[in-house]
Design a protein around this nucleic acid. Structure first.
Length: 691
DNA sequence: CTAGGGTTAG
């Protein structure tokens, strides 16, 4: 038996070292072993500094329960153990326990020191805008004499005021600082970027230089962020030169912010040049490079960089996976998206709110609403983007009922409040799903109910909504009293509706506006010509065609594609080049007989007026989407939905035929055209013939 | 033994 009191100091020193080692190697096992040894050797007289070490250890490794227990069982808690606890909790984003501990130490009569206040401010920075907790800590810091002179305390207070949106107080604190140091300038710069005031970041930088200060890596990152956010390309490029001269580019974060800056300024090549020169890269570097490609229409390169990252031993992070999922959503790459879902599950990041929201978004945009619903319903928490993505998923397939019901859930959940995107999605669901009255009422009341002023996108939805329901004149009235200039999509929606309901004169007005706004677009010309043709106004139809030829506008050829075993098969109308051409024709011929027996009549009205080829009735059967479907029926095993993409709107006859085929062969067919999804099953389509 | 400002995403 050792005499406890005498043994303590001698045993305590190596114990302290062991705990330090556990922290630096981030090893919970080593730390717990040291804790057990402390209890065995030193209890009940564990010296306060060992207790502080233990609290620090659990706190730093983000084991909040154990940290709280260590603090609670400390027989003589000190400022240091409390500060260690508060610091860890604040750093790991747990403001409530941090602030409770701060209050607790005050109650015990312990006086917070110059180390405690910065952590307390960091925790208080999480508080909602109207909370006074930060100001209360501020008063305390003044009373204890740490303000205005202590740099650490004053900078933390400054940052807290910025982060809680109390800009006036932040500015006053900054203006009254007796001697501003670099960290204070940096706090101004970084918070201006975060709050979306990039010009102020640049101004603060100039202020720093005028005061004779030199930037450090933090200031440099903030500067590039400001340039990236507002795409100040030339300003950032000039700064790049300065950064090279100072040697800052060896810092990973600086180079990362440059990659991001060039990517956001639509210079993926320059981003790549920075990336290639980096001596050290981290996961952020790889992710920034992926995003730089993905956001500049270079999705394939984005995936190549991802594969390169994996080969270099990078572990997929939540950032990486959510960025790639967004890329899939843009590519309509459902298979790729599913593969990434699997990666997310294996990496245990599928419950991350960014990843899960990106999954909901990807499944919704790629035509897998059921999977979107599954992810959505199993998410531990949801935010605005999650709800918007789910509503958007329903909008894509025109499921207005579910879109409205989820919208209702969102409002009732109280988790978030709708923003303008929410309303765009709900309105477009109503329009696609034919819920005219509900959609129109929502449009009329959105300002008063949700405080959201209708934007161009909302007007486009409501014009589409009314137009589809045959109320083109009402839609035109709304366009005329819009507070902002009507966009291409608004006139496009009106033209489409006029075409659908034979409102030729109004359609002409819309088309003229469209030709002004977008003279090169072929689709609008085709639509106008077809509209005249349907109305029997042949000479005007011909005039439009002549005009197109004169100006040199070519009709975009319709293409459909389908993926099978990771190979994309592309079809054009009357395509005979596919390797399985004969089988495809045989399937189509058989389908035609079965469909006619079931009552199908071909709809050739558009084929007949086609601008380039006067297609005959039989040629309707060679449309690209039908060829793709036949291929899918041959290759894709029964039970697996057939997914087809088309670059133009699906044709009326193909739509009619697909409904028959879905019933005859008993398969689900999902067509994504340039506007929406059509989900065919049992002789019906999800759009209910309204698109 | 405890401390401030930093890069990527839905």
């Amino acid at each position: 038996m050792r005499p406890v009191a005498a043994a303590a100091p001698a045993d305590a020193q190596p114990l302290a070292a062991a705990i330090e080692a556990a922290i630096s190697s981030r090893s919970p096992r080593l730390g717990r072993a040291a804790h057990a040894r402390a209890l065995r050797l030193l209890a009940p007289a564990i010296p306060p500094f060992i207790c502080a070490h233990l609290v620090n250890f659990y706190s730093k490794l983000d084991l909040p329960g154990a940290a709280a227990a260590a603090l609670a069982t400390d027989p003589h808690p000190t400022v240091v153990s409390y500060t260690a606890f508060i610091s860890g909790a604040a750093q790991h984003g747990r403001p409530v326990p941090a602030l409770l501990a701060f209050a607790g130490m005050l109650r015990l009569g312990l006086r917070p020191n110059d180390f405690t206040f910065p952590s307390a401010f960091k925790a208080a920075a999480f508080a909602p805008a109207r909370s006074t907790i930060g100001s209360q800590i501020h008063s305390l810091a003044i009373r204890f004499g740490y303000l205005p002179d202590d740099h650490f305390v004053s900078c933390a207070a400054l940052d807290m005021y910025f982060k809680t949106g109390q800009l006036a107080l932040a500015r006053r604190l900054f203006d009254e600082m007796p001697n501003r140091n670099l960290v204070a300038w940096n706090a101004v710069m970084t918070n201006a970027v975060l709050d979306g005031r990039p010009l102020e970041t640049v101004e603060a930088y100039l202020g720093l230089r005028e005061a004779g200060g030199m930037p450090n890596v933090v200031s440099v990152c903030a500067f590039f962020n400001a340039c990236a956010g507002s795409t100040y390309l030339s300003l950032g490029e000039q700064f790049h030169g300065f950064v090279l001269k100072c040697g800052f580019e060896t810092d990973v974060s600086v180079s990362n912010s440059m990659v991001d800056f060039y990517g956001k300024c639509r210079c993926a090549g320059k981003a790549r040049a920075v990336f290639d020169r980096m001596g050290v890269r981290n996961s952020v570097s790889w992710c920034s490079m992926v995003v730089a490609y993905a956001q500049n229409g270079a999705e394939e390169e984005a995936f190549t960089v991802y594969q390169h990252a994996r080969r270099s031993g990078e572990v997929p992070t939540d950032f990486m996976v959510s960025s790639l999922l967004t890329t899939c959503a843009g590519l309509l790459g459902l298979d790729l998206g599913r593969a990434l879902h699997a990666v997310a599950v294996r990496s245990c990041i599928d419950a991350n709110i960014f990843v899960a929201s990106a999954l909901v978004d990807m499944y919704g945009k790629c035509g897998g609403v059921e999977d979107a619903e599954l992810v959505f319903s199993e998410m531990p928490q949801r935010n605005l983007v999650t709800w918007n993505s789910m509503i958007g998923g329903y909008a894509h397939i025109g499921d207005a009922r579910n879109a409205l019901s989820i919208f209702d859930d969102m409002i009732r959940s109280g988790e978030t409040t709708p923003n303008y995107i929410t309303l765009v999605n709900v309105l477009s669901a109503c329009s696609r799903g034919g819920l005219t009255a509900e959609g129109y009422q929502l449009f009329e009341t959105m300002k008063e109910r949700f405080g959201i002023e209708p934007r161009t996108e909302h007007y486009a939805c409501v014009v589409d909504l009314l137009g589809r329901a045959g109320m083109e004149e009402r839609a035109y009235e709304i366009i005329q009293r819009m507070p902002v200039r009507p966009s291409i999509s608004i006139w496009g929606a009106l033209l489409g509706a006029c075409k659908m309901h034979g409102k030729t004169e109004l359609g002409k007005i819309a088309a003229e506006k469209l030709f002004e706004l977008d003279p090169q677009d072929s689709g609008n010309h085709v639509l106008l010509s077809n509209m005249f043709a349907s109305a029997g106004r042949w000479s005007e139809a011909t005039d439009v065609r002549k005009e197109m030829k004169k100006v040199g506008i070519k009709k975009e050829p319709g293409r459909s594609w389908i993926t099978w075993k990771n190979v994309v098969h592309v079809f054009q109308a009357k395509d005979t080049t596919h390797e399985m051409h004969n089988e495809i024709q045989a399937v189509l011929a058989k389908l035609k007989r079965q469909m006619q027996a079931a009552g199908y009549m071909p709809d050739t009205q558009y084929a007949l007026y086609d601008l380039e080829e006067e297609e005959k009735e039989s040629e309707v059967f060679q449309h690209s989407e039908k060829l793709a479907l036949a291929f899918g029926l041959i290759c894709i095993p029964p039970g697996v939905p057939i997914r087809i993409m088309k670059n133009l709107r699906i044709c009326v006859d193909c739509h009619r035929a697909f409904k028959f085929i879905s019933g005859i062969v008993g398969r689900e067919i999902i067509v994504r055209d340039n506007n929406r999804f059509h989900h065919f099953r049992h002789y019906e389509c999800s759009c209910r013939d309204y698109w």
